[in-house]
């Protein structure tokens, strides 16, 4: 059956297709850097940064656990600051520099922060871990010598149901120390 024939068919005529054409007409191009690589993609303007990273770039590290900016599982760095990518439109990231959990390690070496999450047993089911790591990265990049309270404050937007947070806190604190030592060397 051809499209023309289908259109004459009563049933197909009743098909509601308005959402398909309207979404296509509004597409925009964004140009940004993700984990050090330039990315140019055409997207629908209502696409969220989280969905852009996961569905388009196939970077599945950032998770969606509430979709409302309340749990932090989708945290990535945008221009050096931690953002909940479920509340950021992909078009807002045009021209920005994005870092996700996939960009944390250097080659095949885990970063100090990742190592400390492993050493301190700062994860169990692991679903919140990418977001935790990125919030911690955002903190340490902007404040390399955080106090205990500053760690609590920076990490309080990331929910974890398994660990009870203590090991995550220890991992962030120890990573800060080790990064300081490394800088001094």
């Amino acid at each position: 059956m051809t499209v023309a024939e289908l259109k004459n068919d009563g049933k197909a005529c009743a098909m509601d297709t308005a959402h398909i054409s309207s979404a296509r007409e509004l597409r925009v191009v964004i140009d940004l850097v993700v984990n050090g690589e330039r990315v140019i993609e055409e997207i629908e303007p209502n696409m969220l940064l989280l969905h852009f990273l996961r569905d388009r770039l196939k970077l599945f590290g950032a998770k969606e656990a509430c979709g409302e900016g309340e749990c932090g599982a989708c945290t990535v760095l945008m221009n050096g600051y931690a953002v909940t990518s479920c509340l950021v439109l992909a078009v807002e990231a045009n021209g920005a520099e994005i870092l996700t959990v996939e960009g944390l390690s250097k080659g095949n070496e885990l970063s100090i922060l990742q190592q400390e999450f492993v050493f301190q047993d700062a994860l169990q089911c692991g679903f919140c871990t990418p977001g935790m790591l990125m919030s911690a990265r955002g903190l340490l990049d902007n404040n390399p010598n955080p106090t205990d309270e500053e760690i609590h404050e920076a990490m309080a937007g990331n929910l974890c149901r398994c660990t009870g947070y203590l090991q995550i806190f220890n991992a962030v604190k120890r990573a800060a120390e080790r990064e300081r030592e490394e800088r001094e060397e």
Partner: peptide, 8 residues
């Protein structure tokens, strides 16, 4: 399973 979980 730690390494798989800290690398995404």
């Amino acid at each position: 399973d730690a390494i798989e979980k800290v690398t995404g």
